[in-house]
Amino acid sequence: MKDPVIEAKAITKTLGRGAGEVQALRGIDLSLRRGELTLLMGPSGSGKTTLLLILGCMLAPSSGEVMVCGAPTSQADKEGLAKIRRDHIGFVFQSYHLFPTLTAVQNVQLALDIRSERRRKARERSRQALKMVGLEQKTNALPLELSGGEQQRVAIARAIVANPSVVLADEPTAALDGSNGKTIMRILATIAHEQQSAVLVVTHDPRVLPFADRIIQIEDGRLVDERSGERERVRMPRSAAFGAD
């Protein structure tokens, strides 16, 4: 078995203070491996987002350790954590969080610009990433000119353009209808299987089950169940497959 790119050990997290204190996570062990699409499912308030933030080095655990590519993260300061995210992690958010004043390709390119990649090369790679999510026709569109599904695909292109070891997505299909949701999941599956990233998707959505290699259940801050997925082999030409239906 491959070495895990993210390894969380005995993670707990207390949120809030005093009377409002919540034990959001109560001892979580989890590893994410390259080439695997993992689903994290659970009821509302069970701690999914909290866990994703901790795995993505955006939130420090109350106890326990998160290792990214074999290196511990507990000693890193804010800038150090930003660097770990920059070097290893791509994020996809439920509400896209694109920059409204930048075009699709510029939104993607931004992920390379913060990594100081040269402009010309960055532009070419960004176009490639947009092609990979089936948006090569829309490179110069502004987010407002795109549908929700297209915006989410731009966000995915932005998350993967720098070849992260891990892609973390929090309910990426929640705001989308069935066919758009399916397209997004297919793309995420391809990223796991063909680009060999570790992909973790938080979801409530049972429609995404067919794409998973692994399904993890969380309840009340604890992992309660893990089973392997029932994924259909996703084999199709890289670009053509993802156009919105």
């Binding site: 955006m58 930003a82 660097k83 995210r85 992920a111 610009d113 913060i114 990594r115 932005r158």
Partner: peptide, 16 residues
């Protein structure tokens, strides 16, 4: 601010 937070989440340095 939410754009700057997004940049930060993407791993941008404060300097950027």
């Amino acid at each position: 601010l939410s754009e700057f937070a997004t940049l930060r989440a993407m791993g941008s340095s404060n300097r950027y």
